[in-house]
Structures are given as structure tokens and as C-alpha cells.
Design a protein around this nucleic acid. Structure first.
Length: 805
RNA sequence: GCGGACGUGGCGGAAUUGGCAGACGCGCCAGAUUUAGGAUCUGGUGGCGACCCCGUGCAGGUUCAAGUCCUGUCGUCCGCACCA
């Protein structure tokens, strides 16, 4: 019988249309079924169209989503657009097109590209962060935070990108340059809206215990939050009533503090102006430090610099010793109290500084050689030269000194975090307007909830201003408004929100995307939350994940969402590199366009390829040959029609491998071992051809197993071969554990650990039976001639090893 | 510097609790088919002409048995980076 050729260009659009028409991937809010919420990071619709990296994540969770549906779940697998952001705005400026139009165009392109790949997204729940009906709720959440005191305005030295002319969060500065454009970043003081994420540091850290994130992600979150335990200690400034408070994780070394260092920005410098004898030196140093970019300032291996505050001495509270106070930019104003007690004997940085400037080094923990280097070991050291702490271990000394400090009122136990508050202002046009109005009488007043959203005004020019103000600042008729509280003159905030805002809660909006009265109805949230499985890139594990957890926890505390954590499970995919093993980029000329791949090989081959090529969490280089191989596999699947024979069950010969494959594929999908799952299906296919026939029952199971990876071809074959109903409605196959186990297996026979022969044995063969089988082997008996058997080891089902001398 | 991951054929990569290293795919070789190329099909494919033997970055160790465990060492990648 002659069959039609496999033609993905024909069958793929056909099935995409059928799925869409029937609405089969629409999640219902029918709470009778168990729910499953699968989530991928919604894309930023850039002008370049989708990248081959996008489908890696989307296919993976599409596999999970499709499998779950066949397992009887009500699945939510949504998609949307994280569409605010700089690249669109920059493109708009350059080409004089409104960013809204650019966005719409990019979204349309992305949408058609994603649709061509056959993902089972519920398109009816599509969201777009730039849609006023969406950002109305982004603003609403912001106002709730403002109400609770979590949003505040502060004069902050911020990271200023000299090229984008925009303030950046610490996280957007990579190696001292702008994450987006690579431009130089300097420090600039601006009044900025801040979000108090630090208030949630403890919860964000502790609740990592109750979620199922891959370990790597948890570790990165923990490091970013950076919790440390220690103490705050007050030092008196000699001859004044002023105190200098420091934070230290090593209060045990207090006797070894020989000088103090304060950050150049520390307010004490100005307070002590009259007493500082070398004021001009200090001012000069401070100016120099402020001019430095963060990059220069934090560059490692840099010679330490600093100047003493002459005339200022601090008093060590444990022994009354007077010690000098210096200022140096290795002490950061933004961490702890902006001041440290320097213990050069036991801190590497302090040691370097002391060596350079000839300051005293005292050993207070014995065990190292402080002439050569700081001794920082806290496990083995014993306290010396430390009065009442002498002889204690570091751990004991910490406890004792903290108690002593607290009793004397000189200090207290303190926990600190590296996590900083979130700079939430951007001086840009293409973002959510911050919905606040400044009134001279009333201060900052929120725009009333019933007036949300505060929409972006139409403007002629959305170029950033040279002063660094948002382009919105130039639109007088928009800026000038009434104070909602007193009716007097008010001015709108002209800063907009960062791109992270809209993505901090989008997974909630998917649950109830068309709700005009609330961001999502609580009963729906109760049904769908938490997200069961969230997959995304490692590049978002610190920022986006932390921010969205923070927003979610805030909403939880307010009673608006039912779970303390948004995502139950988080996994990450590896990057897809260019064929030359480098990151894909236009400048490297190694970009693969998914459209070309679909046109030449089909979406199914593309999907199979991306799942098969390597381990899901590892980076993989692109390989056109590998892709060709996956297409060949599908061609061979297609041609199975030619050897299809009647029989609803499995043939005796293949029964065992059928059950094995069902088990392997089912389990591998869950573990995201897609490459070995596909390999198992390829092996099964080879078995079909080796057998020369495949029964209808075997083929049906094969198609179901392959369906989540290659949905179009399998659905088409299901139809062509006249199976009942549609493939996606079928049940996920079950395997029979007793049939997975082989009754008779091959056991390797080793001599001194080296395989010499193989014998066929029952899985449960006794040692005697095994021995008999082994002795029957000619190869073995030949090799054993003249040797003395020392020992024989038999592990049923595994190995038979003969040790000889 | 700190934290994490990794190192296996010509290539991408497989290998439950330590138990036949190299599944699956690519590439390559031979054959079939074809006017030819491509495509397809069949067989082969870690090294060595063959046996022996040697083989999971390198050097040791534990074990009847090590890619897997332990010690040391080299290299690559990722994250953080003066956080007191």
C-alpha cells in the first residue's frame, strides 16, 4: 500500500487550526478536576523574533502539560508578553515609531512564530504587561505597597548608565557596566522610589525550605539574600559624646580591633569636621571616592586606599584602648552601619590595609601566623590576648562577648543581609507610570483606586531628557493635576516602573485575565495556586524570582493570595549555543532562525531535536546535522504505517520492551530527561523495524508516548490509521511492573573483575545454578585452567566474578 | 578570593544502590538501490593489523569489582564579588 509522504508543512498548520477551533487547550475553571499549573517565563517580544532558546523551555513544559492532560488533569499552560522595556523604547526613538506600535508588531510576530511550533498554550488567557487593563493592577499592587509603607522615596546614590541615561538596579550592573547596553555606570544621587524588599529578607530566605526548587537556584537565592549573624558594637569617640556603631560577624575578635574604618559617605565625617585636623585631605579623598564608578571602587585586587581622620580617636569598649579612625572606600555605606572595627590579625582586608599603612596587628585567635597573613579559621582557633575570653573557642567567645556587650549596653546581637532595597524608579517613557501625585500640602498622595490605571499619555517625543528626568516630565498638561486629597495643585510622579514590575505578578493574572474588578478572583486563585511547575533560565533566578516571590508574599500577607509561595517547583534549562559553541548573537553571525528550521524540517523535528540533543539543564551547541537526524527519525515514524499489522495488544516478542519504554518515557519526562526519553522511543522504533511489523496496539502506544514531543505528526498518524477519537484525548499509557522485569537475563562472568563471558540465567538464579552455568562455559574453564580460585562473588541479576591467583 | 557545576569515542551525549563503559543520535566506512548526485535501505564503527592488552582530564587510594567512593592535582564553564 502506497502512503502519502510525510509533509509537515501541510499537517502542522492543519492540526494547529483544529486545536484552536476546538479550544482543546483552554483551561477550564471547573474545579471538579485536579488542576495543574505549568508556567514558562513569558517572553519579552523583541524585534528579532523568537530565538531557538525560547522553544527549549516551552517544549519541555508543553510535554509536561500535554502529558498531564492525558493523565486527567485540568491544565493551565498560559502565555503572555513582558512587553515594557528599554529595547523597544530605544528602537522607537531611533525609528520614530511609537513604542506601542513597535510592541504590537513584535507581539504579532512572536505569536505567529510560537503558534507555528504547536505549543498547547491557552491563548485565551494571553496577557500583555503594557495593556492598561493589565498595568492597572500593577499600579494597584504598587499602591497597596505604598499604603503599607513598603514604597518610599529616598535620595540615593544610584547606578546611572551614562549611555541609557537611566538608573539601574544593582542587579542590572554587571561587572561595572550596564547589563543591557554595556555602557559605563557611575554613581549619581537621585531621588528614587524604593521598595522595601529587605523587610521580607527573612521570609524569602526561610521559605526556600518549603518549595521544590533545584538546589542551584536555592543556593543563588540564599547567596543573594546573604544572611549573616553577628553583633553591633558601639565605640565612643574620645572626647565627645558621639558614638560610632559598627557591625561585625566576629565580635569574638573585639580585643584585636586596632583601628576603625568608616565609609567616605559616613555622616560622622561631617559631624566631626571641626575636630578633623587634616580636613582637606579627607574631603579630597571623599571626592575621589564618589567620583569613582562602582566598578572601579569594587574592583578586586585593587590596592587599598584611605586617609586617617587625624584628631579623632575611638575607644575600644572592652579595654578602653584608644584606636585611630580612618576612612576608606573598601567600607561600603550601604552595608551594615557603614563603619567597621578593623581586626587586621583575623580579617584579610583589614590585614592588607594595616600592612600598607603600618597599623598595629594583634593576635587574638591563636593557630595561625599573623605576620604572614590574617588567620581567619574559626574552627580550630583558641582565644588569646583577650582578657576574659582567653582559652575559649571562637564559637564560645562569640556567645560570651555578645552577652557581655548586651549586659553593659555596649552592643547587641544583630542579623544582617546583603539584600538591598529595590530601586523601583526608571526615568523612562515605556513603563507603568507610578500612580502617585505630589502635593505641596499633603506630600505624596496615591491616585485613588477608582482612577486607575494612570495611563501613559500620548507624546510627540519619548526621548529621555538630558537632565535625566523621564520624558513624561515635559508633558505639562499630564504632570499638572489636582491633589486627590485637598484639591490643590498637584504634580504627577513622572518616573515609571522597571520591567521587573509587570513580571512580578503575571502568573496571577493568567488565573483570571479578564477580571475588571480585581487582579484575580480569590476562589480562582485558591483553585489554581501555587504554580505547580515553573521553568525558566538561570539568568532570572536571582532577580525575577526574588522579586516575584516578594510581591507574592506581600499579597499573601494582605490576604489577596492563598499561598505563601507562588511557585511550588522551579527548574532551569541550559542555553542553546551557536554551532561554534559560542553564545548566539548577530555579531557572531551564528544565529539560527526558528522560522527557517520549521520551514525546512517542520516544528515536530525542531521540538524533537531540542529535547534530544543534550541534557535539558546543560548548555548545548546547535547542530544542523543533529536536527537532520531527528527529522529522519520522524520520517521513519511516518513509514511505520507500512508495517502496521492488526492486533490491539502487544506482540509477545515486543511486550517486554513496550512496557519498559512506557516506564522509561513516563519517568524520564518527569525528571526532564527528555534526551533519554526520546532515545528510548528511537530504540523502540528500531525494534519495530527489526521485527518487521508493528501491531495497531503497539503503534497506538508509541504515538501516545511521542505525542507530547511531536504533537502534529502523531495526531496525523492517529487519524490516518483510523484510531478512534483524537490522540490528545487518549489516556497516558500505564506499564505493568511485572512485565518490565526480564525473567531471563545475561550475566557477565568476570575473572579478576574483567568480563570474559556472558551466561543466560534466570533473574533469581541461586549461586549454585549460576556456578553451574559458569562452569559450563568453555571460555571460562579454559581461562581457569591451572589457576587457583580464591573467591567467587555472585550478585544475582548483576555479576559473577571469579577471583583467581 | 568564595560558592556551584563539569571533564567519557571523530562529535552531541548515555550509564539505578559501585556490577558488561560508550545507549540513542550525528559523522565515517562498506554494500544495495540510483544514469549521477541527493534521499533511502542493510551491515560495521573506542584504540591497536590481529590476539593479548589499553581505555571515562592527571596521580594515588579503597574494593572481588571504580566513569561512579576517598585524597591530591590540572583544566573548563557559570554565579557572587572588599557584604566586615
Amino acid at each position: 500500500m502506497k502512503h502519502k509522504e510525510y509533509n509537515p508543512a501541510e499537517i502542522e498548520p492543519k492540526w494547529q487550526e483544529i486545536w484552536e477551533k476546538k479550544g482543546i487547550f483552554k483551561a477550564s475553571d471547573d474545579t471538579g478536576k485536579p488542576k495543574y499549573y505549568a508556567l514558562i517565563e513569558f517572553p519579552y517580544p523583541s524585534g528579532d523574533g523568537i530565538h531557538v532558546g525560547h522553544p527549549r523551555s516551552y517544549t519541555a513544559l508543553d510535554i509536561i502539560a500535554r502529558k498531564r492532560r492525558m493523565e486527567g488533569y485540568n491544565v493551565l499552560y498560559p502565555i503572555g508578553w513582558d512587553a515594557f522595556g528599554l529595547p523597544t523604547e530605544n528602537f522607537a526613538i531611533k525609528n520614530k515609531i511609537h513604542p506601542r506600535i513597535v510592541t504590537a508588531k513584535n507581539v504579532a510576530r512572536f505569536k505567529s512564530q510560537l503558534k507555528s511550533l504547536g505549543f498547547s498554550f491557552d491563548w485565551s488567557r494571553e496577557v500583555n504587561t503594557t495593556d492598561p487593563s493589565y498595568y492597572k493592577w500593577t499600579q494597584w499592587i504598587f499602591l497597596k505597597m505604598f499604603e503599607k509603607g513598603l514604597a518610599y522615596k529616598a535620595e540615593m546614590p544610584i547606578n546611572w548608565c551614562t549611555s541609557c541615561k537611566v538608573g539601574l538596579a544593582n542587579e542590572e550592573v554587571v561587572n561595572g557596566v550596564c547589563e543591557r547596553c554595556g555602557g559605563e555606570v557611575i554613581r549619581k544621587v537621585k531621588s528614587q522610589w524604593m521598595l522595601k524588599i529587605t523587610e521580607y529578607a527573612e521570609k524569602l530566605l526561610n521559605d526556600l525550605e518549603i518549595v521544590d526548587y533545584i538546589e542551584k537556584v536555592k543556593i543563588q537565592q540564599k547567596n543573594w539574600i546573604g544572611r549573616s549573624e553577628g553583633a553591633e558594637v558601639s565605640f565612643e569617640i574620645d572626647g565627645t559624646d558621639k558614638k560610632l556603631v559598627v557591625y561585625t560577624t566576629r565580635p569574638d575578635t573585639l580585643f584585636g580591633a586596632t583601628y576603625m574604618v568608616i565609609s567616605p559617605e559616613h555622616p560622622l565625617i561631617d559631624e566631626m569636621k571641626d575636630r578633623i585636623e587634616n580636613w582637606s585631605d579627607v574631603v579630597e579623598y571623599r571626592m575621589l571616592a564618589m567620583k569613582k564608578s562602582d566598578f572601579e571602587r569594587t574592583e578586586i585586587n585593587k590596592e587599598k586606599t584611605g586617609v586617617p581622620l587625624k584628631g579623632i580617636m575611638a575607644v575600644n569598649p572592652v579595654n578602653g584602648k584608644k584606636i585611630p579612625v580612618w576612612t576608606s572606600d573598601y567600607v561600603l555605606m550601604s552595608y551594615g552601619t557603614g563603619a567597621i572595627m578593623a581586626v587586621p590579625g583575623h580579617d584579610t582586608r583589614d590585614w592588607e590595609f594595616a600592612k600598607k599603612f603600618g597599623l598595629d596587628i594583634i593576635e587574638v585567635v591563636a593557630g595561625g601566623d599573623i605576620e604572614k597573613e590574617a588567620f581567619t579559621d574559626i574552627e580550630t582557633g583558641v582565644m588569646v590576648n583577650s582578657g576574659f575570653l582567653n582559652g575559649l573557642s571562637v564559637e564560645e567567645a562569640k556567645e560570651k562577648i555578645i552577652q557581655w556587650l548586651e549586659e553593659k549596653g555596649l552592643g547587641r546581637r544583630k542579623v544582617n543581609y546583603k539584600l538591598r532595597d529595590w530601586v523601583f524608579s526608571r526615568q523612562r517613557y515605556w513603563g507603568e507610570p507610578i500612580p502617585l501625585i505630589h502635593c505641596e500640602k499633603c506630600g505624596w498622595v496615591p491616585v485613588p483606586y477608582d482612577q486607575l490605571p494612570v495611563t501613559l499619555p500620548e507624546v510627540e517625543n519619548y526621548m529621555p531628557t538630558d537632565t535625566g528626568e523621564s520624558p513624561l516630565a515635559n508633558i505639562t498638561e499630564w504632570v499638572e493635576t489636582e491633589c486627590p486629597k485637598c484639591g490643590g495643585r498637584g504634580r504627577r510622579e513622572t518616573d515609571t516602573m522597571p520591567q521587573w514590575a509587570g513580571s512580578s505578578w503575571y502568573f496571577l493574572r493568567y488565573i483570571d485575565p479578564h477580571n475588571d474588578n480585581e487582579f484575580a478572583a480569590i476562589d480562582k486563585l485558591k483553585y489554581w495556586l501555587p504554580v505547580d511547575w515553573y521553568n525558566g533560565g538561570m539568568e532570572h533566578t536571582t532577580l525575577h524570582l526574588l522579586y516575584s516571590r516578594f510581591w507574592h508574599k506581600f499579597l499573601y500577607d494582605c490576604g489577596y493570595v492563598p499561598t505563601p509561595e507562588p511557585y511550588q517547583k522551579r527548574t532551569s534549562h541550559g542555553m542553546i549555543l551557536g554551532e561554534n559553541n559560542e553564545k548566539m548573537s548577530k555579531s557572531r553571525g551564528n544565529v539560527i532562525n526558528p522560522d527557517d528550521v520549521v520551514a525546512e524540517f517542520g516544528a515536530d523535528a525542531f521540538r524533537v531535536y531540542e529535547m534530544f540533543q543534550g541534557a535539558f539543564d546543560q548548555p548545548i551547541p546547535w547542530s544542523q546535522q543533529g536536527l537532520r537526524g531527528c527529522r529522519r527519525f520522524l520520517d521513519r515514524v511516518w513509514k511505520l504505517q507500512e508495517i502496521l499489522v492488526p492486533g490491539e495488544g502487544y506482540s509477545e516478542k515486543l511486550d517486554n520492551i513496550m512496557h519498559k519504554t512506557i516506564k522509561k518515557v513516563s519517568e524520564d519526562f518527569e525528571k526532564m530527561k527528555f534526551n533519554t526519553a526520546v532515545a528510548a522511543l528511537m530504540s523502540l522504533l528500531n525494534e519495530f523495524y527489526a521485527a518487521g511489523a508493528v501491531t495497531r496496539g503497539e503503534f497506538a502506544t508509541f504515538l501516545v508516548l511521542l505525542n507530547p514531543v511531536a504533537p502534529h505528526i502523531t495526531e496525523e498518524l492517529w487519524q490516518i490509521c483510523g484510531y478512534e477519537g483524537m490522540l490528545h484525548e487518549q489516556k497516558w499509557p500505564a506499564w505493568d511492573e511485572t512485565k518490565v522485569i526480564d525473567d531471563e537475563i545475561e550475566i557477565a562472568v568476570q575473572i579478576n573483575g574483567k568480563v570474559k563471558d556472558v551466561v543466560r540465567l534466570s533473574r533469581e538464579a541461586t549461586k549454585e545454578e549460576a556456578k553451574a552455568a559458569v562452569e559450563a562455559s568453555e571460555t571460562i574453564s579454559k581461562l581457569l585452567a591451572g589457576k587457583t580460585i580464591v573467591k567467587e562473588i555472585y550478585v544475582p541479576g548483576r555479576i559473577y566474578n571469579i577471583v583467581v591467583r
